[in-house]
Each structure stands twice: as structure tokens, then as C-alpha cells.
């Protein structure tokens, strides 16, 4: 349990003057969202959200606008107060913190990146990056050292003394990322950081972010409305709809086994080539033999390990007329992927 960094348990957020009453009614009667609005004039922002994020994980929360994802991420550092539920960060109950403890936690444990950068226009890039350290009261020399270092991490050497307005959108967001990293936080909260950028720059920043997170291993809560982005970056993905979490799983689980029609709609256009692996689509060796007969000779078949993705299997398959034999731990044969299975797998069917 020690390596669970973020822990949410039954978190609710209801907006409105009568949020308290509405919450009680929801708990007692299980009202639907529309009923809450009708009876209390209150809007349900977050409904009964629970999940854990492990150390070093990039946990993506994906949802369309209005699904409550940006509201949810602001609960972690209590920029928004929950109506009910438990939020723990690094084992500490966030709700029990006093004002000053909360500020200390925000300054030391959490770095946040915003959709619209939210840089301070009157400060140089260096001073923007150093802002969290300045709040913590670090001396100026140290602030400069750290900001120099984090700026070089995001590839912005030489821009320290510029002002944000002189930088392009992509560069500004890299400053935002550097600022979030400057205080060396345990947790990164990223609220649609790349959504406002054009697709090419977005792709570049995603790659840079992935490289950076391999290096730094920051536990990250990443908010996005773009499933492609969630799949590229996420260790696990939570899909939100109307303030509720519909499904949590690895990108492969989400794509191959969508929990409901809503998720299925999202994933149907996603390419499975890099997401689905041999062990998911293979037929176990025993059942293959049972169906095709013991005599079926697999000696001429190529071998591929079970963690090969479909892209790799296609490469193998076009070189041979035989089915591919999948090998498990220790090089033992565990299953078979025929051409039919491979094609169905690419389609996403079973």
C-alpha cells in the first residue's frame, strides 16, 4: 500500500447554495443528476469518484467538456473543496490540513500545469519558473539555479530572460511545465496542458513529456479530452462522463474491452496496432491443437514473444504462410495466432 500516492474514496462535488441538503438527499435516496438540479437547484460536478494512483504512474482522466475532469483535478490540492468523500495524497488526508499546511503541501508536494498556461506576464521566464520557490522563500541564487536546470530539462536553454509574451504557445506551455517541476514535487497535476496547442506542437510536447517522465518518474494525474493523448501517455486511463468514472483500465483494457457503449463509441476509431498484444488475441496452444488436430505441424511456424503488439505480428505474418506461434516465459510455446485471428484483432473484434 505504501506506493499508492493518490487515493480518492467516494468523492462528491455538488455546486449550489443548497449543496449540503442535496448531498444528504443523494445519499439517502440516490437521486439522479437531473432530479438534484430540479429539487435543489444544485449541479452535480463530481459523483462518487474513487480511484488510486500508484507511484510513478501517469494516470489519465479522459472525458468530454463538462464531464467534471477539470473540477476533479482541482480537488487534489483543494482549489475546489469536495462536498463529500476522502482525498489522500501521500497518505495524508488533504481535507484535514489547516490553511498553512495546505499551502505548504501545494508549494512542496504538488506541481500543476494549466490549459491556458497562466504564466505571470510581468515576470521573465526565469522568474516564472522560480515562482513556486519564491513562494517557499528560497534565496534568489538557488531560485536561479533551479530554474536554469528545469528550463534545460524542457529544452528552453537560452530563453531565461525573455518574457512569456515573446514565446510561442508551445514554448509557453513548456515554461508552465518547467514551473511545475521547479519545486521537485511528488505529484504533477496536468489540466489539459496540451489542448490549446496545434496538433503538431501537441505531438512534440507529448513526446517530450513522455521522455521527461521516463527520466523523472513523477506520479502524474493527466487530464485530457483526447483519447489518443490518453492512450499515448497513460499508464492507466479513467473515462469520465457526467461526473462519474465509467471505466478505469490500461489503454489495452479500455480499447479491447470497453465497459459500455459510451466508451465503445470512443475507442472504435482508435488504432489497435500498438495497443493490443499477442497474449490477448492468441488461441491457447491446447485448444488450437484440440481443434486442428495433434498432427498439425508447427515446426515451420515463426515464433514471437507474447508481449509483441499487433504491428509486430503483422510484420512477422507477411513473411510466412504459417500461423505464428507465441512464446511465453522461458521461450515455451503458449499459443497460436492465425492470420484470421490477427486480422480480427486489428479490427478490434474478438
Amino acid at each position: 500500500m505504501n506506493d499508492i500516492v493518490i487515493e480518492l474514496e467516494g468523492v462528491w462535488k455538488i455546486f449550489g447554495e443548497r449543496a449540503g441538503e442535496a448531498m444528504a438527499a443523494v445519499k439517502a435516496e440516490g437521486l439522479a443528476k437531473s432530479e438534484v438540479l430540479e429539487r435543489f437547484g444544485a449541479v452535480v460536478g463530481i459523483a462518487d469518484v474513487s480511484f488510486n494512483v500508484r507511484r510513478g504512474e501517469i494516470f489519465c482522466i479522459m472525458g468530454l467538456s463538462g464531464s467534471g475532469k477539470s473540477t476533479l483535478v482541482r480537488h487534489l490540492n483543494r482549489l475546489i473543496e469536495p462536498t463529500a468523500g476522502v482525498i489522500k495524497l501521500l497518505g495524508q488526508d488533504v481535507m484535514s490540513l489547516a490553511e498553512s499546511e495546505l499551502r505548504a503541501m501545494r508549494a512542496q508536494k504538488i506541481g500543476m500545469v494549466f490549459q491556458h498556461m497562466a504564466l505571470l506576464p510581468h515576470r521573465s521566464v526565469r522568474d516564472n519558473v522560480a515562482y513556486p520557490l519564491e513562494i517557499r522563500g528560497e534565496p534568489k541564487g538557488r531560485r536561479w539555479d533551479v530554474s536554469q536546470h528545469t528550463l534545460s530539462l524542457v529544452g528552453l536553454d537560452g530563453f531565461e530572460d525573455r518574457f512569456p509574451r515573446e514565446l510561442s504557445g508551445g514554448m509557453q506551455q513548456r515554461v508552465g511545465l518547467a514551473r511545475a517541476l521547479a519545486s521537485d514535487p511528488d505529484v504533477l497535476l496536468m489540466d489539459e496542458p496540451f489542448s490549446a496547442l496545434d496538433p503538431l506542437i501537441r505531438r512534440q510536447l507529448q513526446n517530450q513529456f513522455m521522455a521527461l517522465s521516463e527520466q523523472l518518474h513523477k506520479t502524474t494525474l493527466f487530464i485530457t479530452h483526447d483519447l489518443d493523448e490518453a492512450i499515448r501517455l497513460g499508464t492507466r486511463i479513467a473515462i469520465m462522463k457526467d461526473g462519474r468514472i465509467v471505466q478505469i483500465g490500461t489503454p489495452e483494457e479500455i480499447v479491447t474491452d470497453p465497459a459500455d457503449d459510451y466508451v465503445r463509441d470512443f475507442v472504435q476509431d482508435i488504432s489497435k496496432l500498438k495497443l493490443v498484444f499477442a497474449h490477448t488475441i492468441m488461441e491457447p496452444l491446447e485448444s488450437y491443437r484440440a481443434a486442428a488436430g495433434e498432427a498439425k505441424d508447427l515446426s515451420e511456424s515463426p515464433r514471437a514473444p507474447e508481449d509483441s503488439d499487433l504491428d509486430r505480428l503483422v510484420d512477422v505474418s507477411i513473411t510466412t504462410p504459417h500461423p505464428i506461434v507465441i512464446t511465453g516465459a522461458g521461450g515455451r510455446d503458449v499459443g497460436v495466432v492465425t492470420k484470421d485471428r490477427l486480422l480480427r484483432g486489428i479490427q478490434g473484434g474478438k
Binding site: N77, L79, L102, R103, A104, M105, R106, A107, Q108, I110, M112, F114, H116, A118, L119, L120, P121, Y131, P132, I135, R136, R179, S183, L189
Partner: peptide, 12 residues
Amino acid sequence: SVVEAARAFGAT
């Protein structure tokens, strides 16, 4: 958004 960012970094 700027005010929120400053608060998120723990500003008093």
C-alpha cells in the same frame, strides 16, 4: 487562471 495558478503553488 493566473490567480488560480498562484494559489496552486501555495501563495498566501
